[in-house]
Write a protein that binds this DNA or RNA. Structure first.
Length: 569
RNA sequence: CGGGGCGUGGCGCAGCCUGGCUAGCGCACCUGCUUUGGGAGCAGGGGGUCGGAGGUUCAAAUCCUCUCGCCCCGACCA
């Protein structure tokens, strides 16, 4: 394609509102333009890249027996009422009414729609398992869209759903999905990790995220420096620390004055003790009322883990106001002894003896707390956050490392959540009606492309992996009005397309410098520079975007050379 | 939702505090000539209800009120 005919509005300067590199570069390279907060137009170059990602996804989905469908983006409220999510999904669900005042929403996800299709059309265990997928535009009215296409409100997502008669079958599909996902992200040239993710109340290792490592990522993942354990930090398990064998004589409860000492740091300094002798009491607001979480003084409560232990629908840190209203105390003097809330303790708490905590009395703490004797707790479990350097829960010698990443994919076993509420039933070989078991699997298409830029760029611009590049090669004629250059450039252009190489010919009348800058910004892997001087010597210059290496090749041999390079990239 | 910031031509900004001529600058765009191996030079040119509404004033981009939009910082998700 000829550059002058394409809409590639490149910019020298980054838009003022762009934060992360991928956003800046996508705008500068003329791939995307913003319409409204979190809503973008995709321009020709951007679309070429997204199509590449989609194509890779399609191939791998089809490979594992997925069937592509295309579901409605506008969905009736009744369907959501059936699953119970119409009331449950908050403001993120974009709702509207049609002319007859019927309620609809713009689909943020498609469990309801797919379950409806399958329950109507699939009746027998003989038809199971089945995996359906689509690549769709979705809308989630996020509180705070940001980072361009990486976290928009409107976004393209591949979502797949599988339906099964048995758990074994579910797990089979789950693991072939996991493999397909790994192949997809590998083919996209990404450095990623498959990590265990929070699966909510369902439990078990039935949820994994695919996370592209990038400092700009919004997710934190913990992984072992020795074995292959990796987990989203909100789920990352902890190893029970060895119990203190030398149990000192249990002391009696004792009130000590700790005027104005509220934080763990202040209290430990004041009492000259180490933080791991303290019990920290953190109050959370949940749909089941206020609860207290207990962790050691040197630990933090992980809200996701606590939520799962409590078994509630939602959980947020209680505001200081709310705490004051219910307990009559400022934060800092709260403690588990005699508190009138449901108490959930981290598994590190029971082995502690002679510990210290707030006395539920202003300016006062309690010492000599014995877990068994003094505390009444609802449940004990793993509710603390992992820190870098903590021992790996899966292997002997490993330690946790923590890195940021971008979640590009998520696979999840849904179980019978939707099939039960929406009556997606099949007849088993005994003629008995049973709910299907479901799995769901998502990939953020635009986010994957953005993540690729986060990982592959330099000061000049994008450096596309060959598999995602909008064009594999660009021809840069030094002076396109020079007859020899003109005809050589066109000849190369023609041969490359015949070879199946997507090639851009920069036919603009601009100087070479301009063409170089744009070619680098756009990140096209191979640059072919055709100049009158080299051409006079029968040479063409071929330069690689990634390394900057360039080589002079004899004019009639450049096509063969390029196809060799392509096979190596 | 809470806290903060910004809205001036397509993009990036100045001007605002301390109201006062046809509202500026860089980039981009159009025309012509020259130029052509790293974002060219000269000459000419087009494009702006200063986000919107109301108010104060002889006079408002500038001051006041309201409003809309966008962005950033804290609890969710692909």
């Amino acid at each position: 394609m000829y550059y002058s005919k394409l809409l590639i509005p490149t910019l020298k300067e980054s838009p003022a509102d762009a934060e992360v590199v991928s956003h800046k570069l996508m705008v500068r390279a003329g791939m995307i333009r913003q319409m409204a907060a979190g809503i973008y137009s995709i321009l020709p170059l951007g679309l070429r890249v997204l199509r590449k990602v989609e194509q890779i996804i399609r191939e791998e989905m089809n490979q594992i027996g997925g069937q592509e469908v295309f579901l409605p983006s506008v969905q009736p409220a009744e369907l959501w009422a059936e699953s119970g999510r119409w009331d449950f999904y908050g403001k993120e669900l974009l709702r509207f009414k049609d002319r007859n005042d019927r309620e609809f929403c713009y689909g943020p996800t498609h469990e309801e729609v797919i379950t409806d299709i399958v329950r109507r059309e699939v009746k027998s265990y003989r038809q199971l398992p089945i995996t359906l997928y689509q690549i769709q535009t979705k809308f989630r009215d996020e509180v705070r869209p940001r980072f361009g296409i990486m976290r928009g409100r409107e976004f393209t997502m591949k979502d797949a759903y599988s339906f099964h008669a048995t758990e074994e079958s579910t797990h089979e599909t789950y693991s072939s999905m996991a493999n397909a996902y790994s192949r997809i992200f590998k083919r996209c040239g990404l450095d990623f990790k498959m990590v265990e993710a929070d699966s909510g109340t369902i439990g078990g290792n039935f949820s994994h995220e695919f996370v592209v490592l990038a400092s700009s990522g919004e997710d934190c993942i913990g992984f072992c420096n020795s074995c292959d354990y990796a987990s989203n930090l909100e789920k990352a398990e902890t190893k029970t620390s060895p119990i203190n064998t030398e149990s000192p004589l249990p002391e009696d409860l004792n009130e000590v004055a700790t005027p104005k000492k509220k934080s763990v740091e202040e209290v430990t300094q004041f009492l000259r003790v180490s933080p791991n002798t303290l019990i920290k009491t953190i109050i959370f607001e949940t749909d089941q009322g206020l609860v207290a979480g207990l962790v050691r003084g040197d630990r933090e409560v992980n809200p996701v883990k606590l939520k799962n232990l409590v078994g509630c629908e939602w959980l947020i840190p209680a505001s200081e106001n709310l705490i004051a209203k219910t307990t009559g105390l400022p934060c800092g003097y709260l403690g588990p002894v005699g508190i009138k809330l449901k108490v959930f303790a981290d598994k590190e708490i029971p082995p502690m003896s002679n510990s210290i905590a707030g006395a539920n009395k202003i300016d006062t703490h309690l010492t000599g707390i014995q877990f068994k004797r003094d505390l009444k707790v609802e449940k004990i479990g793993d509710i603390r956050s992992v820190n870098e350097g903590d021992p790996c829960p899966k292997c002997k010698s490993g330690k946790y490392k923590i890195k940021r990443g971008i979640e590009v994919g998520h696979i999840f076993i849904l179980g019978k959540k939707y099939s039960e509420s929406m009556q997606a039933l099949y007849l088993d070989d005994q003629g008995k009606e049973k709910p299907m078991i479901m799995g769901c699997y998502g990939i953020g298409v635009g986010r994957t492309a953005a993540a690729a830029i986060e990982q592959n760029h330099d000061e000049q611009g994008i450096i596309w992996p060959i598999s995602l590049a909008p064009f594999q090669a660009v021809i840069l004629p030094v002076n396109f009005s020079d007859d020899a250059v003109h005809s050589a450039a066109k000849k190369i252009y023609k041969s490359l397309w015949e070879l199946g190489v997507e090639t851009l010919l920069d036919d603009r009348p601009d100087r070479l410098g301009v063409k170089f800058k744009d070619a680098e910004l756009l990140g096209i892997p191979i640059q072919i520079i055709v100049g009158p001087k080299n051409l006079g010597d029968g040479k063409i210059e071929i330069k690689l975007r990634k390394t900057g290496e360039s080589q002079l090749i004899s004019f009639p041999e450049e096509i063969a050379y390029i196809s060799t390079i392509l096979s190596e990239l």
